[in-house]
Amino acid sequence: MKGLKKQRRIQIIALAAVALVGATGLVGYAMRDGINFFRSPTQVVEDPPSQGEVFRIGGLVEEGSIVRGQSETVTFRVTDMNESIPVAYTGILPDLFAEGQGMVGTGSMIDGTFQATEILAKHDETYMPAEVVDALKEQGVYVDPNKPES
């Protein structure tokens, strides 16, 4: 009788372990295209992404860099005040998108230009995406807009 209980317990534990491994595998498989890593322009220059790799880039829209074409394609440069990356986006930009403001784009590098499929802009005059703030702080150029000047 004791041998049967022990055998049953081992079977349940083995079945639970197989189910856990299977569930983890399914979640990983389902998320493989949904995980986009954030990079600053400096990180993109120092460690270029592989061809076709989808990632997020963020920084400030460089002053004087926005060029609106005949179609819906807009080109501009995104900078972290250390490096600058050209960006091309076809579509309608957010209303709050402007030069000198924070932005985050999702897309991939093609021939040295970041081809964005999505552009996110700041929410108000003081908001900047957390990833952009972290990248600017890492470069030592972040200035807190809420901090009074001394």
Rank of each mutant, 00 (worst) to 15 (best):
residue 107 G to D: 10
residue 69 G to E: 13
residue 35 I to R: 06
residue 61 V to L: 04
residue 58 G to F: 10
residue 57 I to V: 15
residue 29 Y to G: 07
residue 62 E to G: 06
residue 79 T to I: 12
residue 78 V to E: 01
residue 72 E to Q: 13
residue 61 V to S: 03
residue 104 V to I: 13
residue 49 P to M: 01
residue 44 V to F: 03
residue 97 F to E: 06
residue 88 A to R: 14
residue 90 T to A: 12
residue 25 G to H: 06
residue 71 S to G: 15
residue 34 G to F: 04
residue 105 G to E: 04
residue 86 P to R: 10
residue 101 Q to N: 11
residue 70 Q to G: 15
residue 72 E to K: 13
residue 56 R to D: 11
residue 103 M to T: 13
residue 70 Q to V: 15
residue 101 Q to Y: 11
residue 42 T to N: 02
residue 91 G to Q: 07
residue 93 L to R: 05
residue 108 S to Q: 15
residue 83 E to L: 05
residue 82 N to P: 00
residue 100 G to D: 11
residue 52 G to T: 03
residue 95 D to S: 14
residue 42 T to D: 03
residue 87 V to S: 11
residue 52 G to W: 00
residue 42 T to I: 08
residue 92 I to K: 13
residue 96 L to G: 03
residue 85 I to S: 05
residue 80 D to L: 05
residue 38 F to M: 01
residue 29 Y to D: 07
residue 102 G to L: 02
residue 107 G to Q: 00
residue 31 M to C: 11
residue 42 T to V: 05
residue 86 P to A: 11
residue 63 E to G: 00
residue 92 I to V: 15
residue 28 G to P: 05
residue 108 S to W: 07
residue 94 P to G: 05
residue 61 V to P: 01
residue 91 G to P: 02
residue 67 V to F: 10
residue 26 L to M: 15
residue 103 M to A: 13
residue 49 P to T: 06
residue 41 P to H: 04
residue 94 P to R: 06
residue 66 I to R: 01
